[in-house]
Amino acid sequence: MKVTIEENEETGKFTIKVKTEDGEEKTIEIPKENLEEILAKLPPNVEII
């Protein structure tokens, strides 16, 4: 699983794009305050880009 994290400076939010092993892609946008909480919940086999 690969996770790409991009900061949107205009909105102050982060866009998180997840690509699973089977090629499925999902995108979510979260507030900056929630980034550490989300990262802590990721499984250890995740590659963060």
Score class of each variant (00 low, 15 high):
Val46Ile: 09
Lys26Ile: 15
Asn34Pro: 01
Leu42Arg: 01
Ile5His: 01
Thr4Ser: 07
Glu24Arg: 09
Glu7Pro: 05
Phe14Gln: 01
Thr11Ser: 08
Leu39Phe: 05
Pro44Met: 10
Glu37Asp: 10
Glu21Lys: 09
Glu47Gln: 13
Met1Ser: 04
Ile28Phe: 15
Glu33Pro: 03
Asn34Thr: 08
Glu29Val: 15
Gly23Trp: 02
Leu42Val: 03
Glu33Tyr: 07
Pro31Tyr: 13
Glu10Gln: 11
Thr20Asn: 08
Gly23Asp: 02
Glu29Trp: 09
Met1Gly: 04
Ala40Ser: 12
Thr4Ile: 11
Val18Pro: 00
Glu6Asn: 05
Ile38Trp: 15
Glu47Lys: 09
Asn34Tyr: 14
Lys2Ala: 04
Leu42Lys: 01
Thr20Lys: 05
Glu29Cys: 13
Lys32Gln: 06
Glu21Arg: 09
Glu21Cys: 14
Phe14Gly: 01
Ile28Leu: 09
Ile49Val: 09
Glu25Val: 12
Glu9Ala: 13
Glu7Phe: 15
Glu47Pro: 05
Lys2Pro: 02
Glu36Arg: 13
Asn8Ala: 04
Gly23Thr: 03
Val3Cys: 11
Glu24Asn: 11
Asp22Val: 05
Asn45Trp: 14
Phe14Thr: 05
Ile28Thr: 05
Asn45Val: 04
Ile49Cys: 09
Leu42Met: 06
Gly23Met: 02
Thr27Phe: 13
Glu36Cys: 15
Asn45Ile: 05
Gly23Glu: 03
Lys2Leu: 08
Glu21Asp: 10
Glu24His: 10
Glu33His: 07
Gly12Phe: 04
Ile38Gly: 00
Thr15Ser: 06
Glu7Ala: 09
Leu42Ala: 01
Ala40Val: 04
Ile30Pro: 00
Asn8Thr: 03
Glu25Ala: 03
Thr11Arg: 05
Glu33Ile: 05
Glu21Pro: 11
Asp22Leu: 06
Asn34Arg: 14
Asp22Met: 07
Ala40Cys: 13
Lys32Arg: 13
Pro43Ser: 09
Thr20Leu: 10
Glu29Asp: 05
Ile49Thr: 07
Lys32Leu: 07
Glu25Asn: 03
Ile49Trp: 06
Asp22Tyr: 10
Thr27Lys: 05
Pro31Met: 12
Lys19Gly: 05
Gly12Ile: 02
Val18Tyr: 15
Ile28Trp: 15
Glu7Met: 14
Ile48Phe: 10
Asn34Ile: 13
Glu24Leu: 10
Lys19Thr: 15
Phe14Ile: 09
Thr27Pro: 01
Thr20Glu: 05
Met1Asp: 02
Val46Ser: 06
Lys41Leu: 13
Thr27Leu: 08
Ile30Leu: 05
Lys13Asn: 13
Glu10Ile: 12
Lys17Met: 07
Lys19His: 11
Gly23His: 02
Leu42His: 01
Gly12Ala: 02
Thr27Met: 10
Glu10Thr: 11
Glu29Gly: 02
Gly12Asn: 06
Ile28Ala: 03
Pro43Arg: 09
Asp22Gly: 07
Pro31Arg: 10
Asn8Val: 04
Thr15Arg: 11
Leu42Tyr: 06
Glu24Pro: 04
Lys32Tyr: 11
Glu36Phe: 14
Ile16Arg: 00
Lys13Ala: 07
Thr15Ala: 04
Glu9Asp: 08
Val18Phe: 15
Thr15Met: 09
Lys2Glu: 04
Glu7Ile: 14
Ile30His: 01
Leu42Glu: 00
Glu7Lys: 09
Glu29Leu: 10
Phe14His: 03
Lys13Leu: 11
Ile38Asn: 02
Ile28Asp: 01
Glu47Asn: 06
Leu35Glu: 00
Glu37Trp: 14
Asn34Val: 14
Ile28Ser: 03
Leu35Gly: 00
Val46Thr: 10
Ile16Pro: 01
Ile38Cys: 12
Glu6Trp: 15
Glu10Phe: 13
Glu25Tyr: 10
Pro43Val: 05
Asn34Ala: 14
Glu9Gly: 11
Lys26Tyr: 15
Gly23Lys: 02
Met1Ile: 11
Pro43His: 08
Lys17Asp: 01
Phe14Ala: 04
Asn34Trp: 15
Leu39Tyr: 02
Glu10Tyr: 12
Thr15Gly: 02
Ile16Thr: 00
Ile30Ala: 04
Glu24Val: 13
Glu10Trp: 11
Lys2Val: 13
Ile48Gln: 02
Ile30Gly: 03
Val18Glu: 00
Glu47Cys: 13
Leu35Cys: 07
Pro43Cys: 14
Ile28Val: 08
Leu42Ile: 04
Gly12Thr: 03
Glu33Asn: 07
Thr11Tyr: 04
Glu36Leu: 13
Ile16His: 00
Ile30Asn: 00
Val18Cys: 15
Glu25Thr: 10
Thr11His: 04
Ile5Ser: 01
Ile48Pro: 02
Thr27Asn: 05
Val46Asp: 01
Leu42Pro: 00
Glu21Ser: 12
Ile48Ser: 02
Asn8Gln: 04
Thr20Gly: 10
Thr11Ala: 04
Lys13Asp: 09
Gly12Trp: 06
Ile28Asn: 01
Glu6Met: 12
Pro44Asp: 08
Thr11Trp: 04
Thr4Val: 08
Pro43Trp: 14
Glu21Thr: 09
Glu36Gln: 13
Thr20Tyr: 15
Val18Gly: 00
Thr15Glu: 05
Glu33Val: 06
Lys19Asp: 04
Gly12Lys: 04
Phe14Val: 09
Phe14Cys: 09
Thr15Pro: 01
Gly12Glu: 03
Lys2Asn: 05
Leu39Gly: 00
Glu24Trp: 12
Leu35Val: 05
Lys32Ser: 07
Glu36Ile: 12
Thr4Asn: 03
Thr27Arg: 06
Val18Leu: 11
Val18Ala: 01
Gly12Cys: 11
Thr27Tyr: 12
Asp22Pro: 01
Pro43Glu: 05
Asn34Gly: 13
Lys13Glu: 07
Gly12Arg: 04
Leu39Arg: 02
Ile48His: 03
Ile16Glu: 02
Thr11Met: 04
Leu42Asp: 00
Pro31Ile: 09
Lys19Arg: 10
Glu29Ser: 08
Thr27Glu: 07
Lys26Trp: 15
Pro43Gln: 05
Gly23Ser: 03
Ile30Ser: 03
Glu47Leu: 14
Lys17Thr: 14
Glu6Gly: 03
Lys13Ser: 12
Ile28Gln: 03
Gly12Pro: 02
Thr20Val: 05
Pro43Ala: 07
Glu24Asp: 08
Thr11Glu: 07
Ala40Met: 12
Thr11Phe: 04
Glu9Trp: 12
Lys13Met: 15
Glu9Tyr: 12
Glu6Cys: 14
Glu10Ala: 11
Leu39Asp: 00
Ile38Phe: 15
Leu35Asp: 00
Val3Arg: 01
Ile16Leu: 07
Lys41Trp: 13
Ile38His: 06
Lys13Ile: 14
Phe14Asp: 01
Ile5Lys: 01
Leu42Asn: 00
Glu6Arg: 05
Asp22Ile: 04
Glu25Asp: 04
Glu24Met: 11
Ile16Asn: 00
Ile5Trp: 03
Ile30Gln: 01
Thr20Trp: 15
Glu9Ile: 13
Pro43Ile: 07
Leu42Phe: 12
Lys2Phe: 12
Met1Phe: 10
Lys2Tyr: 13
Glu21Ile: 11
Pro31Ser: 15
Pro44Tyr: 14
Glu7Arg: 12
Lys26Asp: 04
Lys19Leu: 14
Ile16Trp: 03
Glu9Arg: 13
